[in-house]
């Protein structure tokens, strides 16, 4: 046993002699995980960059063709359309989810028994597969046989998935329905870590509930908002299953996000080269956003409790 990288671990000079032998004897234990991870996650990620410079129909031989795919994809308006749709999904799902998740998180953090019980039910949508959810809402929103006609309600009898604006709204609603509880859980954990002394001080100063929320709870949750937003935004890049089953990108191409455009090009049209270009762009967009949000948060390591 030798020193540990854990920040609080004091060095132990007495065990220094065992260092070389010990590290050799545990290192091999990381190998099985490392091998699978390298072979089926890291290698494919590098491979997709390599494939973006080739011509491959998914069955036959792979031919290197240089930057041909890149120039054709970058000149194709459907790339920018799918980037725009991806951005819309990202923005609207963030705008809808964040305030509700925050409010629910504060609610769930309360010490009341019934709140814990409600929270159990909130989680159920997270258990359903995206395919099952999409299939369900497709039936529920059917303009001829769904909810609207079933309740004889004209307001609910819309061509929900046949109208570009409504289809986008439906996707945002379903995403929120499924994922808000997850983010609320993150906020709940963070709210519970806010020191009660802050609230006691605010109460002594006569601050009302609104004032307390905006002056104490919200500022204390700054880093949690960034964590949750990053997960939301990066996660929204990969809403493939739901949109694929629900609208398949339609009507027309109005909900065709980047991941869907990639699948369509690659596995629909057998153009693996251009599809790989789209995959690389997908990774880059995710990285840029994650790093940007991290910047926005400043130094995440600094204590949120400074001065307490």
């Amino acid at each position: 046993m030798t020193t540990d990288a854990a920040p609080l671990a004091p060095p132990r000079p007495s065990s220094r002699g065992a260092r070389a032998g010990q590290s050799g004897s545990v290192a091999w234990m990381a190998l099985p995980a490392l091998a699978i991870f390298l072979g089926f996650a890291v290698l494919p990620l590098l491979g997709v960059l390599a494939l973006s410079f080739t011509k491959w129909d998914g069955l036959g031989a792979i031919h290197p063709i240089g930057i041909g795919n890149w120039s054709s994809v970058l000149a194709d308006p459907s790339l920018f359309h799918s980037l725009w749709v991806t951005f819309e999904v990202m923005l609207f799902s963030w705008l809808v989810q964040t305030p509700i998740a925050l409010l629910l998180g504060v609610f769930m953090a309360g010490q009341h028994r019934y709140r814990a019980v409600l929270a159990v039910f909130y989680f159920v949508p997270l258990l359903l597969s995206a395919a099952a959810i999409a299939v369900t809402f497709k039936a529920l929103l059917d303009p001829n046989f769904g909810l609207g006609p079933g309740l004889h309600s004209d307001l609910l009898t819309q061509n929900w998935l046949g109208d570009p604006v409504l289809a986008m709204g439906v996707i945002i609603f379903i995403v929120s329905w499924q994922f808000i509880p997850f983010h609320a859980l993150i906020y709940q954990g963070a709210v519970r870590q806010i020191p009660s002394s802050l609230y006691e001080a605010a109460a002594l100063d006569g601050a009302g509930r609104m004032r307390t929320f905006f002056s104490i709870t919200l500022p204390q949750l700054k880093y949690t908002v960034i964590t949750s937003s990053t997960l939301m935004v990066v996660g929204s890049l990969t809403f493939f299953d739901l949109i694929f089953v629900l609208t398949a990108g339609g009507p027309g191409d109005s909900t065709r996000v980047l991941a869907l455009e990639m699948y369509r090009r690659g596995f629909g049209a057998n153009q693996m080269g251009p599809a790989s270009v789209l995959a690389v762009i997908l990774v880059l967009v995710g990285l840029v956003i994650a790093l940007g949000l991290r910047r926005l948060g400043g130094n995440a390591d600094e204590s949120q409790l400074e001065g307490v």
């Binding site: 991870f37 089926f40 494919p44 990620l45 990969t238 991941a259 690659g266 990774v283």
Partner: peptide
């Protein structure tokens, strides 16, 4: 560090090479 970076790899982006492998 490599595993931490792995959290950021979207499955969709790697699917074509996975198919090949």
């Amino acid at each position: 560090g490599l595993f931490l970076m792995g959290l950021a790899i979207p499955l969709q982006a790697a699917i074509i090479p996975i198919y090949l492998v």
